[in-house]
Design a protein around this nucleic acid. Structure first.
Lengths: 342, 342
DNA sequence: TTGAAAGCGGTACCAG
DNA sequence: CTGGTACCGCTTTCAA
């Protein structure tokens, strides 16, 4: 290496190189790359394009982000992307975001509020343009974080009801739950149905619980027992064991998520109780897993794709006024309830 | 608002504000924030910290990235994060990355090479510090993309064997597969075992296929039939239907992933074929789903966490020489093979 | 120990 | 239509 050589060994080609090669100013390069904001003579533009091509120039997104104040990146924080429903939801979100030119930074909290807060802080520091968060625990702090500096829009996904001051998207969980419980009650004639629900669900706001109660009320039945357990297969398994170990073992149960229901099915199998004959089960989510388990689950369907698209759109057009975007949950009947369909 | 007020309505607080309030230069603010590269008198540092506190100052990661040339972000591209194994792998990767101060940008290709290339290009444009990619199809283009400008390290994850010039991490798939096939052959006495494998797997390099072949060879048995099908529950289901529809229906099958095995189990159920009595199944992955399905799967375990940590470490210390990091796959025996364990 | 200032790679306003 | 140039917010060298 000659004495006078610059230290920089091998750096990316920048708009300076392009400008030099094309014999124009850097401004012009910018104009042609972004097709604006000023017009460029066709001949000049062609020269620039040619230079870009020859040099293999790629604009530096980081630099652009700094200049324009937008990273075209959104943050996604979920409790557990391993849960089949969240896995699908996250996938649809990533997809929708990509379609709009956004990348997504994903973060798992594992249901830990401390982790949640750290994640959000980190994401905000990274100048994301918007935040999608599922199963918020520390909404207050998150608001604070997202508001310092350039206020970044946050939309609460997987939210059963509206939260003041926030745009939220979620299924009409109450109706969905009510549908499956009513199905168990009325078409299969159970006297009442038990419920297994996530221990992180807030009874006051959780639509599933309200729907379960509503179905019983409307039918004039006494509520079944309820078991609270983590939102996981293992959680469902343990709750299932408890439920099936009771003296007054229920004949039907509504489980608040597919992943828990999978656990319940497993518990029933271990204990030798037949589903649906001895225990009918209704579930919530309609993740792909619910179609393939044994027996396939009768469940209320969360339209993940539509919700994902709505959530991404809402956060990207971040100015919009707070609103609650609700999605209907169709009942999908399979065999875990006792039906012979499918 | 007074007439001379700046237009800028409400912008984030920057190190300028901090510097002003603390009565120091911006350089000093930087020194105390980063604890270097120059020392700062304790008294001064205290003033700065105080100003930071009062102003609620948070450094702008984008600006920092531009200045230092590192985004502390890595890219992760996978075919399908909805597949339970990838879901877990991705989760572990995100976790490991977070521990090292990195964020992860995730992208799904859906097994589409075009999407893969676009994703990688986008990620590189975003100046990621490293790329983790599973199931590469267009390695050549990816190399090219990752090398223009500042060469970003790419490590191939979920790779069964080493790829020239690349550091790769993956399980010892051949041994893992061989273990499950041998188990079926020897402890359960099947004459031979069929195989269901992903249609995107390359027979030449895919360890699972080699292991399956090896087990038969070592036992002096004739190979069973093979079905190729997509890496998904649905794919497994369809292959299962085909396999079980054959005149010479196999008595045992090795399936190349848990998600496909779940599909096979479903197919068997639909056809009234008892597992494991009429069809023994061995699988590959040991994702959580395999513990909860019916019957629970005997499978070769991919140590997702260890692989994730190794992959992240490798990509972060991106200078290291290419190497293949192999992880042993223990056999986990459950009931789908015919064992009574667990 | 501290500060001034030159970048990092783009954007976009203001003049010409 | 095009060029010069002042930022965007932070890092880091160099001089004081």
């Amino acid at each position: 290496m000659a004495a006078g050589d610059p230290v920089r060994v091998r750096t990316a080609v920048t708009r300076n190189d392009v400008a030099r090669l094309a014999g124009v100013s850097t401004a012009v390069v910018s104009y042609v790359v972004n097709d604006g904001p000023r017009p460029v003579a066709e001949a000049t533009a062609a020269r620039v394009r040619d230079a870009i091509e020859r040099l293999g120039y790629r604009p530096n997104t980081t630099a652009r982000a700094l200049a324009v104040g937008s990273t075209t990146t959104i943050g996604l924080v979920v409790p557990d992307s391993t849960n089949p429903f969240f896995a699908e939801y996250a996938w649809q979100i990533q997809r929708a975001a990509t379609d709009l030119g956004y990348a997504v930074l994903i973060s798992n909290t594992g249901f830990d509020p401390g982790v949640e807060e750290r994640s959000v802080r980190d994401l905000c520091d990274r100048q994301i343009d918007g935040l999608l968060i599922a199963g918020v625990s520390g909404l207050r702090q998150i608001d604070e974080l997202s508001r310092q500096g350039r206020r970044i829009p946050v939309v609460l996904i997987d939210e059963a009801s509206s939260r003041r001051g926030h745009t939220t998207v979620g299924p009409d969980a109450a109706t969905g739950a009510e549908r499956v419980v009513a199905h168990l009650l009325h078409v299969h004639g159970h006297a009442s149905v038990a419920m297994i629900i996530g221990d992180s669900a807030d009874p006051a706001t959780d639509g599933r619980e309200r729907g379960w109660i509503g179905a019983h009320a409307r039918a004039g039945r006494r509520l079944g027992v309820v078991e609270r357990t983590p939102f996981s297969r293992q959680g469902g398994f343990e709750a299932g064991l408890r439920l099936l170990g009771r003296a007054d073992r229920p004949t039907a149960v509504f489980v608040s998520s597919d992943s828990q229901a999978i656990g319940v099915l497993h518990a029933a199998r271990e204990l030798g109780v037949a589903v649906p004959d001895e225990l009918a089960v209704g579930s919530f989510d309609d993740s792909e897993e619910s179609r393939f388990c044994s027996p396939p689950l009768t469940t209320a369907r969360q339209p993940a794709r539509a919700m994902a698209e709505a959530a991404v759109a809402a956060v990207v057009h971040g100015g919009t006024t707070p609103e609650h975007l609700v999605f209907d949950m169709p009942l999908v009947v399979r065999r875990s309830c006792g039906c012979r369909t499918e």
